[in-house]
Amino acid sequence: MVERAGNQSVLSWFLQRISGLFLAFFLITHLNVHHLFHDITTEGIIDFASVQANLASSVWWQVYYFLFVPLIAFHAMNGLWAILADYRPSGGPAIILKTLFWVVGFVLTAVGALTLINLFGGGQ
Protein backbone atom coordinates (compact mmCIF):
# COMPACT_ATOMS: atom_id res chain seq x y z
CA MET A 1 0.00 0.00 0.00
CA VAL A 2 1.32 3.40 -1.02
CA GLU A 3 0.75 6.06 1.61
CA ARG A 4 -1.75 8.66 0.41
CA ALA A 5 -1.67 12.35 1.22
CA GLY A 6 -5.44 12.47 1.66
CA ASN A 7 -8.06 14.82 0.37
CA GLN A 8 -8.34 18.58 0.78
CA SER A 9 -8.47 19.65 4.44
CA VAL A 10 -11.51 21.32 6.02
CA LEU A 11 -9.51 24.54 6.45
CA SER A 12 -8.57 24.54 2.76
CA TRP A 13 -12.23 23.97 1.83
CA PHE A 14 -13.45 26.73 4.15
CA LEU A 15 -10.84 29.31 3.09
CA GLN A 16 -11.64 28.64 -0.59
CA ARG A 17 -15.26 29.68 0.00
CA ILE A 18 -14.41 32.72 2.13
CA SER A 19 -11.73 33.97 -0.31
CA GLY A 20 -14.17 33.27 -3.16
CA LEU A 21 -16.84 35.49 -1.59
CA PHE A 22 -14.33 38.34 -1.22
CA LEU A 23 -13.10 37.79 -4.80
CA ALA A 24 -16.67 38.12 -6.12
CA PHE A 25 -16.68 41.67 -4.74
CA PHE A 26 -13.10 42.45 -5.83
CA LEU A 27 -13.57 41.13 -9.37
CA ILE A 28 -16.88 42.89 -10.04
CA THR A 29 -15.28 46.19 -8.96
CA HIS A 30 -12.02 45.59 -10.82
CA LEU A 31 -13.69 44.48 -14.07
CA ASN A 32 -16.09 47.42 -14.01
CA VAL A 33 -13.41 50.07 -13.42
CA HIS A 34 -10.56 48.74 -15.57
CA HIS A 35 -12.29 46.67 -18.25
CA LEU A 36 -15.99 47.41 -18.85
CA PHE A 37 -16.60 51.06 -17.92
CA HIS A 38 -13.30 52.31 -19.34
CA ASP A 39 -14.65 54.45 -22.21
CA ILE A 40 -12.23 53.99 -25.09
CA THR A 41 -13.82 56.81 -27.11
CA THR A 42 -13.17 59.53 -24.50
CA GLU A 43 -10.40 58.11 -22.28
CA GLY A 44 -8.25 56.40 -24.93
CA ILE A 45 -6.20 53.27 -24.28
CA ILE A 46 -5.07 52.39 -20.78
CA ASP A 47 -1.46 53.44 -20.09
CA PHE A 48 0.81 54.02 -17.09
CA ALA A 49 -0.36 57.59 -16.50
CA SER A 50 -4.08 56.73 -16.60
CA VAL A 51 -3.67 53.72 -14.28
CA GLN A 52 -1.60 55.82 -11.88
CA ALA A 53 -4.19 58.63 -11.88
CA ASN A 54 -6.91 56.06 -11.23
CA LEU A 55 -5.07 54.39 -8.35
CA ALA A 56 -3.97 57.68 -6.78
CA SER A 57 -7.56 58.97 -6.69
CA SER A 58 -8.17 57.29 -3.31
CA VAL A 59 -6.04 55.57 -0.66
CA TRP A 60 -8.72 52.86 -0.64
CA TRP A 61 -7.58 51.69 -4.06
CA GLN A 62 -4.19 50.91 -2.48
CA VAL A 63 -5.82 48.97 0.36
CA TYR A 64 -8.07 47.28 -2.21
CA TYR A 65 -5.29 46.06 -4.51
CA PHE A 66 -2.92 44.97 -1.74
CA LEU A 67 -5.73 42.72 -0.45
CA PHE A 68 -6.85 41.63 -3.93
CA VAL A 69 -3.44 40.31 -5.06
CA PRO A 70 -2.70 37.87 -2.19
CA LEU A 71 -6.35 36.77 -2.09
CA ILE A 72 -6.50 35.82 -5.75
CA ALA A 73 -3.07 34.13 -5.61
CA PHE A 74 -4.25 32.06 -2.63
CA HIS A 75 -7.60 31.18 -4.25
CA ALA A 76 -5.91 30.08 -7.50
CA MET A 77 -3.24 27.93 -5.82
CA ASN A 78 -5.60 26.47 -3.22
CA GLY A 79 -8.00 25.66 -6.06
CA LEU A 80 -5.34 23.84 -8.06
CA TRP A 81 -4.40 21.93 -4.91
CA ALA A 82 -8.06 20.95 -4.35
CA ILE A 83 -8.21 19.49 -7.88
CA LEU A 84 -4.98 17.53 -7.36
CA ALA A 85 -6.01 16.32 -3.90
CA ASP A 86 -8.99 14.60 -5.56
CA TYR A 87 -6.53 12.29 -7.33
CA ARG A 88 -5.01 11.42 -3.95
CA PRO A 89 -1.34 11.83 -4.92
CA SER A 90 1.13 9.67 -3.00
CA GLY A 91 3.30 11.22 -0.25
CA GLY A 92 6.35 12.32 -2.30
CA PRO A 93 4.62 13.95 -5.30
CA ALA A 94 2.04 15.50 -2.93
CA ILE A 95 4.74 17.32 -0.93
CA ILE A 96 6.54 18.47 -4.09
CA LEU A 97 3.31 19.80 -5.67
CA LYS A 98 2.13 21.47 -2.47
CA THR A 99 5.50 23.21 -2.13
CA LEU A 100 5.37 24.25 -5.80
CA PHE A 101 1.91 25.82 -5.36
CA TRP A 102 3.07 27.75 -2.29
CA VAL A 103 6.15 29.02 -4.16
CA VAL A 104 4.13 30.07 -7.24
CA GLY A 105 1.57 31.74 -4.95
CA PHE A 106 4.27 33.72 -3.14
CA VAL A 107 6.05 34.72 -6.37
CA LEU A 108 2.71 35.84 -7.87
CA THR A 109 1.97 37.92 -4.75
CA ALA A 110 5.49 39.40 -4.68
CA VAL A 111 5.49 40.34 -8.38
CA GLY A 112 1.96 41.76 -8.02
CA ALA A 113 2.96 43.82 -4.97
CA LEU A 114 6.09 45.16 -6.73
CA THR A 115 3.97 46.08 -9.75
CA LEU A 116 1.51 47.93 -7.51
CA ILE A 117 4.29 49.80 -5.67
CA ASN A 118 5.62 51.00 -9.03
CA LEU A 119 2.17 52.01 -10.28
CA PHE A 120 1.39 53.87 -7.05
CA GLY A 121 4.85 55.39 -6.76
CA GLY A 122 5.12 56.54 -10.36
CA GLY A 123 8.03 54.28 -11.42
CA GLN A 124 11.45 55.56 -12.46
Partner: peptide, 20 residues
Protein backbone atom coordinates in the same frame (compact mmCIF):
# COMPACT_ATOMS: atom_id res chain seq x y z
CA UNK B 1 -2.03 39.24 -16.57
CA UNK B 2 0.59 39.55 -13.83
CA UNK B 3 3.37 39.09 -16.40
CA UNK B 4 2.02 41.88 -18.67
CA UNK B 5 1.45 44.33 -15.80
CA UNK B 6 4.83 43.54 -14.19
CA UNK B 7 6.46 45.57 -16.96
CA UNK B 8 5.57 48.53 -14.70
CA UNK B 9 8.47 47.37 -12.50
CA UNK B 10 11.07 48.15 -15.18
CA UNK B 11 9.65 51.45 -16.50
CA UNK B 12 6.43 53.30 -17.38
CA UNK B 13 7.56 53.22 -21.02
CA UNK B 14 7.80 49.41 -21.15
CA UNK B 15 4.41 49.23 -19.40
CA UNK B 16 2.89 51.48 -22.08
CA UNK B 17 4.52 49.43 -24.86
CA UNK B 18 3.17 46.15 -23.55
CA UNK B 19 -0.26 47.57 -22.69
CA UNK B 20 -0.43 48.98 -26.22
Amino acid sequence: HTYVLSSAISSPRSFDARMG
